[in-house]
Simulated assay, not measured.
Amino acid sequence: MSLTLWLTFLVAAVLISLSPGAGAINTMSNGMRYGVRRSMPAILGLQLGYGAQILLVGAGLGAIVASSTIALSAIKWLGVGYLVWLGISKWREPVMESMSDDHQPVSGHKRFWNAALVNLTNPKATVFLVALFPQFLVASEPHGPQLATMGMTLILVDCLVMLGYALLASQLFRFMTTARRQQQMNRVFGGLFVTAAVALASFKRT
């Protein structure tokens, strides 16, 4: 892959990661409640799910999933159900008794796998990658190294963008000094997760 082609792909990767989605909502929710450092397990979980999608497409299975109505529908509705569950859980999440001490924090291990499932059950990512990769593959060169380069670029860029989202969200932490404000913010993020579920439910292949 030439430098010019890679730079073009890099721009596409940045735009993809910056676009709001379930992953960004998950990261902002964690960033606001736990801060940047403690959001890392969730951010890494998102990259695991994203990496699995990239491997799926790179191995050629993404095209099969994208062309199978049953398989794509199953993944889609699993993702819808999971996002709704996250939304309800966030809506009902108890407030912190002290802003300097999260009384009963969700473990990093649980947040890691919750985030991984957010990206893993997103059929938009599969369909998008199936459409994206062929645009940048050079037919006369080995595909493996090219896919590896694009995959690593996507994950690195997404990781950096999610860190940015977590940093921005963590600035809200200083304002969450009352239980009422915390409850309102939990319900905002809960509503955003459900909104993402509705958007996913209405997703149709073109």
Rank of each mutant, 00 (worst) to 15 (best):
residue 144 G to R: 10
residue 35 G to Q: 11
residue 114 N to L: 05
residue 139 A to D: 15
residue 165 Y to Q: 06
residue 137 L to C: 02
residue 195 T to K: 03
residue 91 W to T: 13
residue 110 K to S: 12
residue 205 R to H: 07
residue 194 V to I: 15
residue 37 R to N: 09
residue 158 D to S: 15
residue 54 I to M: 13
residue 203 F to Q: 06
residue 25 I to L: 09
residue 73 S to F: 05
residue 49 G to E: 09
residue 177 T to S: 11
residue 51 G to V: 02
residue 74 A to P: 06
residue 122 N to G: 05
residue 142 P to C: 02
residue 186 N to F: 08
residue 188 V to E: 09
residue 154 L to C: 05
residue 58 G to L: 04
residue 18 L to T: 01
residue 170 S to H: 12
residue 182 Q to H: 08
residue 206 T to W: 14
residue 202 S to Q: 13
residue 55 L to N: 10
residue 75 I to R: 11
residue 54 I to E: 04
residue 72 L to W: 10
residue 138 V to L: 05
residue 74 A to S: 15
residue 157 V to H: 02
residue 110 K to C: 00
residue 84 V to D: 04
residue 167 L to T: 15
residue 21 G to V: 01
residue 114 N to K: 15
residue 18 L to W: 04
residue 75 I to P: 04
residue 73 S to D: 14
residue 56 L to D: 03
residue 195 T to N: 02
residue 39 S to I: 05
residue 28 M to Y: 01
residue 187 R to L: 04
residue 69 T to Y: 14
residue 103 H to E: 14
residue 142 P to N: 04
residue 204 K to P: 00
residue 150 M to I: 03
residue 163 L to H: 03
residue 34 Y to A: 06
residue 119 N to M: 10
residue 160 L to W: 06
residue 67 S to M: 11
residue 146 Q to L: 06
residue 162 M to I: 00
residue 58 G to I: 02
residue 185 M to K: 02
residue 108 G to L: 05
residue 194 V to Q: 11
residue 91 W to Q: 07
residue 118 V to C: 01
residue 48 L to G: 03
residue 128 F to H: 05
residue 75 I to V: 15
residue 190 G to Y: 11
residue 131 A to N: 14
residue 112 F to L: 11
residue 39 S to L: 10
residue 176 M to Y: 00
residue 103 H to N: 12
residue 67 S to G: 13
residue 192 L to S: 07
residue 202 S to R: 12
residue 120 L to W: 07
residue 49 G to L: 07
residue 193 F to T: 01
residue 171 Q to C: 07
residue 48 L to Y: 01
residue 54 I to T: 09
residue 94 P to D: 03
residue 61 L to P: 00
residue 159 C to Y: 14
residue 87 G to I: 02
residue 134 P to M: 03
residue 16 I to Q: 07
residue 180 R to K: 13
residue 49 G to A: 11
residue 47 Q to T: 06
residue 20 P to W: 01
residue 120 L to C: 06
residue 195 T to W: 13
residue 110 K to L: 13
residue 185 M to R: 08
residue 92 R to A: 15
residue 171 Q to N: 14
residue 173 F to P: 00
residue 176 M to C: 08
residue 182 Q to S: 08
residue 39 S to N: 06
residue 44 L to G: 00
residue 112 F to E: 05
